[in-house]
Design a protein around this nucleic acid. Structure first.
Lengths: 217, 217
DNA sequence: GTCTATACTTGGATAGAC
DNA sequence: GTCTATCCAAGTATAGAC
């Protein structure tokens, strides 16, 4: 039925020529978003970085916006997968704060969140992009909510501060801290905050499990 | 010494022709940033909205980036002045949360923070813009810190959570919530958060002033 | 001093070559 | 199916008109 050589429909991976070109364009798009911001990310700047003709973007992705969404998907999937493994098994607040700090440091160094932040900001300019980006943030809200529920358990805190609301705040705070750290070129204030959160989490643990005081040395 | 008709050096206000044109361009720049985002904000799009020739931007401001910084200054000064009046005299946490929510609602409706967020995001693309934007956020950190110190006083909470660190978090959270509210076109989750914060603040007040329990009805 | 017409550069998208 | 050469719109900036 299919002609010999007809490309598989597989979008993510593959070894065919098309797949290789697509991968190169996606990688170049990620790097360009990180280094030049949304406004500096054009078909030409991406193609230049990839060493390819800019027309290929329109052949393989239809538009620059579509390529950027593919880039966001690529980064998002990779991160979500890794981080879910990292926080699985975390069942107390202070270790969750540790994990969160580790994630923040890693994201900042690798520039992962920059891609997301630039896309969010760019959504104001590119018609139709908003809902697409919004949908790609949804999994992160769910991830944060699950992690918080697992770490806090069913303590009374959950009733005054529902995990769902806190998860929204955490995602927002995370984006804001990244925004400011990147702008100032100084992650110091953000990292100081994680230290404070750690202290607070330990205090919380001491309060919620008063029947298990510190072991004697 | 000066020729008759030599324009005053006053940048902010004035009734001369130059001042009027500048004002129109600043206002159009604000509106364009809000409605079309950083990428959609070009000399042409601003001038079109103002009904002026785009060359005027370069005559009066030297570059598009300079006009955008003037727009940011205009919005920032107006907001800071108004909000400082609003929180002056607030000396307890729950009323500070009320004020913060009012500010958030107002900002969201008027699109004030959008201007700032777009400029932050755009700073990645435009060389030299980062430090300028960063400097214009500084007053807001100070504003938040003062408000928190005034509301929390010298309670023991201040030692585990210093006002300076909290202020940084508040600014970041504020930007993040604005980012998400705007993206989703739904301020619901953010507003729900203010309600939770209010509950928490009231709880805090009850704990820190246990000698003054609720009056009997 | 103020503004407009024009020059030149970069961007998105496609018709047509391989 | 894959890619390149080319088209036209939109961007910044300025030389010159008023």
């Amino acid at each position: 039925m299919a002609k010999a050589g007809a490309p598989s429909k597989a979008v993510a991976n593959g070894t065919g020529r098309s797949a290789v070109t697509r991968r190169q364009l996606v990688d170049a798009a990620i790097a360009t978003l990180q280094l030049e911001g949304y406004t500096g990310t054009s078909a030409r700047s991406i193609a230049r970085r990839a060493g390819l003709n800019q027309g290929l973007i329109f052949y393989h992705f239809g538009s620059v916006a579509n390529l950027l969404l593919a880039a966001l998907d690529s980064v998002s999937q990779e991160r979500l997968q890794r981080y879910e493994a990292e926080v699985s098994g975390v069942t107390n607040p202070s270790r969750l704060v540790d994990a969160a700090e580790e994630i923040f440091r890693n994201d900042l160094k690798a520039g992962y969140v920059t891609v997301l932040v630039e896309m969010i900001a760019g959504a104001s300019s590119t018609p139709g992009l908003g809902p697409e980006v919004s949908a790609r943030i949804q999994p992160w809200r769910g991830f944060a909510q699950s992690a918080i529920e697992a770490a806090v358990g069913d303590s009374p805190l959950g009733s005054v501060l529902p995990a769902k609301d806190v998860a929204h705040a955490v995602v927002a705070l995370y984006l804001g801290l990244e925004l400011l750290s990147h702008l100032d070129g100084d992650p110091g204030p953000a990292l100081a905050l994680f230290a404070r959160a750690k202290g607070l989490a330990e205090l919380l643990e001491a309060l919620t499990t008063p029947s298990t005081p510190k072991e004697a040395p």
